[in-house]
């Protein structure tokens, strides 16, 4: 009788110990998983600041869905009307975590890759307001061809005007309701300054634009202020004020519709047109 009792007691102690060990193992697994998920979420946040939703929407959507599933899906049960939280098996958590990792890597690659072959990575193109899936070079080539033919046709007319626009065409963008130049665009302005210094005969026209928010009068003033800020920058860098012409066009000539914040950002811009004197002058 004693032996039987002793055996039961030993078996009980051993099984309790094993169960505790298992519990510890599971906890460690959960801890590790939570850390991994946290790390992946941070990576996604970082990618969001690099316009991943525009550059790699499908990859980031897949990664987010898998991470959501690891955390445990909750839904409103159509029958009870109550919110129900569900859990998935540890093996599925591992599978989904790996898939999320894979899609985050793919999204990251797309963000930093040059998808249209113009040498500018996707996230930079979005910041500049250009289309990351269509090469600017190709567009400009087609445009220059078209322009050449139109120029030939209207050569006489343009000579009378005194100045004709050059191909050097650039633009910079502004934050909402702001007219200060963003640090990112200073290199562009410096290129234009150097170009103008090297070619004394050239003039520059700066046109400021705004998005669709606010009154026409306010936006006209804001657009002009944007152009004036750039004029001041160029004057500070040694360009004569006689060579700079500014125009403010508030709530006009949008590049895109103003439905999304990205489109509005693209529309809030100042464009440069470097002009060269024609022979007619």
């Amino acid at each position: 009788m004693r032996r039987i009792l002793l055996t039961f007691l030993t078996a009980g102690v051993v099984s309790t110990g094993l169960a505790a060990q298992d519990q510890q193992k599971i906890n460690l697994f959960e801890k590790q998983l939570q850390q991994d998920v946290k790390m992946l979420t941070e990576k996604i946040q970082k990618l969001y600041s690099l316009h991943v939703k525009e550059c790699a929407p499908s990859e980031i959507a897949k990664a987010e869905a898998f991470i959501d599933a690891i955390d445990g899906l909750s839904y409103i049960n159509p029958d009870t009307g109550q919110i129900e939280r569900t859990e998935i098996k540890p093996i599925d958590k591992i599978l989904y975590k790996n898939k999320a990792k894979k899609y985050i890597s793919l999204a990251r690659e797309k963000v930093y890759s040059d998808q249209d072959g113009d040498g500018i990575p996707c996230y930079q193109e979005i910041e500049q307001g250009t289309n990351p899936f269509e090469s600017e070079k190709k567009v400009s080539k087609a445009e220059t061809k078209r322009e050449k033919t139109t120029q030939q046709k209207t050569a006489v007319k343009e000579k009378k005007e005194g100045y004709q626009p050059l191909k050097l065409h650039a633009r910079i963008h502004f934050d909402f309701d702001k007219y200060n130049i963003k640090k990112d665009y200073l290199p562009y302005l410096n290129v234009i300054t150097r170009y103008l210094k090297a070619h004394d005969e050239l003039k520059i026209k700066i046109v400021g634009y705004t998005d669709s928010i606010g009154s026409k009068e306010y936006n006209d003033r804001l657009a002009r202020k944007r152009a004036e800020t750039i004029k001041k920058y160029l004057i500070d860098h040694g360009i004569s004020p006689d060579r700079i012409e500014i125009i403010g066009k508030g709530k006009e000539d949008y590049l895109f519709d103003n439905d999304t914040s990205l489109n509005r950002f693209t529309n809030r811009r100042a464009e440069f047109f470097v002009m060269e004197p024609t022979e007619g002058k």
Partner: peptide
Amino acid sequence: APYEYYKAETYYYI
């Protein structure tokens, strides 16, 4: 609407 569409597709896969 690629972001929304692929999210739906992934949830369906799950």
